[in-house]
């Protein structure tokens, strides 16, 4: 068993609105081990991006982290999460243009990041920046190019280089390939995975795409309406999903398979509830095809460290 790098204990993110307080993340506990790639999957409104933002203190009012603890390398860090930003934890966002300054060359941005966070000389920083670009498959001589000179996929590679330049221990990648074409998406994912494996960097990969998660991560956490629905190793979750939501999510994802022509896709009825209208009990109960009485009144806790579903109880 390898060491735990990051641990969330009962994390709660709330938004105060005039109609009451909404829980965007509700009692979330999970951990990431050193060198591990944890995939967080969920649909829009599941709270997955909020989780990533909460860890590094990027939640803006009226939202706030209202309960829970964040532990990083056995230290409690939720009081000053911004101290970890950049050096220990870096981020990759969906839109490369939010992480790159369009008015400065990629080289300037790489070198500055390295100089700010690492104790190295200027010439060494330049060398590291060149190496970083080379690693993500970009000609180091393009150090002097501006972000707009790169295509979308190349830009995202630059962002990956930027995220890894400070040798962080954790990279939080929030929908890093959603804006990219499929062909480019595969390349960027492979790259991220390869580089993090080589350095032993942990990754929290946040996405709505089960396929992306399946191909990249070691463990999968499934979120629904701000809560953790299921968590487990990629093998366990993909081959033997426990939560009916996970099962439905997988079954309703179409695949490039010659056999699927003419078939009807499995569908989950309804849509994710709004945070101000969560049902009692299990948040998934109105859409669940295996719902029973208890689900409508009592919220299931995470059972056997696997799934938050009352079915787990009857099974064991």
């Amino acid at each position: 068993m390898t060491e735990t790098l990051l641990e969330l204990k009962g994390l709660e993110v709330t938004f105060k609105t005039r109609r009451g307080t909404l829980k965007a993340v509700d009692d979330l506990s999970l951990s990431i081990k050193k060198g591990e790639i944890l995939g967080i999957v969920g649909e829009s409104g599941a709270g997955k991006s909020m989780t990533g933002a909460a860890i590094i203190g990027l939640i803006d009012p009226p939202g706030r982290v209202s309960a829970g603890e964040v532990w990083f390398e056995q230290e409690r860090v939720d009081a000053h999460p911004e101290r970890l930003r950049g050096r220990q934890i870096s981020m990759v966002f969906q839109d490369p243009l939010t992480s790159l300054n369009p008015l400065r060359t990629v080289g300037d941005q790489l070198i500055e990041t390295i100089l700010v966070h690492m104790n190295v000389s200027k010439s060494e920083a330049v060398q590291r920046a060149r190496d970083g670009l080379a690693e993500v498959g970009i000609d180091p001589d393009r150090l002097n190019a501006y972000p707009h000179a790169f295509s979308g996929g190349m830009r995202q590679r630059v962002v990956v280089a930027l995220a890894l330049a400070t040798e962080p221990k954790l990279v939080i990648a929030d929908e890093p390939t959603t804006a990219l074409d499929v062909s480019v998406q595969a390349q960027v994912l492979d790259l991220l995975k390869k580089l993090c494996r080589e350095r032993g960097t942990s990754v929290m990969l946040i996405t709505h795409d089960m396929g992306v998660i399946a191909q990249t991560s070691d463990r999968i956490a499934v979120m629904y309406a701000g809560r953790l629905a299921e968590i487990g190793s990629t093998r366990e979750v993909l081959t033997n999903p426990q939560h009916p939501y996970t099962q439905g999510l997988m079954a309703s994802t179409p695949s490039v398979d010659a056999k699927s022509f003419g078939k009807t896709l499995f569908q989950i009825p309804g849509s994710m509830p709004k945070l101000d209208a969560l049902p009692n009990g299990c948040a998934f109960n109105p859409r669940c095809n295996q719902v029973h009485e208890r689900c409508r009144t009592e919220r299931p806790p995470l059972m056997s460290d696997r799934a938050a579903c009352w079915l787990m109880e009857t099974a064991s």
Binding site: V182, S183, Q185, A186, D209, M210, G211, V212, A214, Q215, T234, R235, L238, T239, M250, T253, S255, V256, D257, A258
Partner: peptide
């Protein structure tokens, strides 16, 4: 098209599409 794609571009698209299956 899914079972016997002719062009390289099609093959690339098919192989790049993320699949939900456990592979490792």
């Amino acid at each position: 098209l899914f079972s016997k794609p002719q062009q390289d571009y099609t093959k690339m698209l098919l192989s790049a599409a993320p699949k939900i299956e456990f592979s490792s």
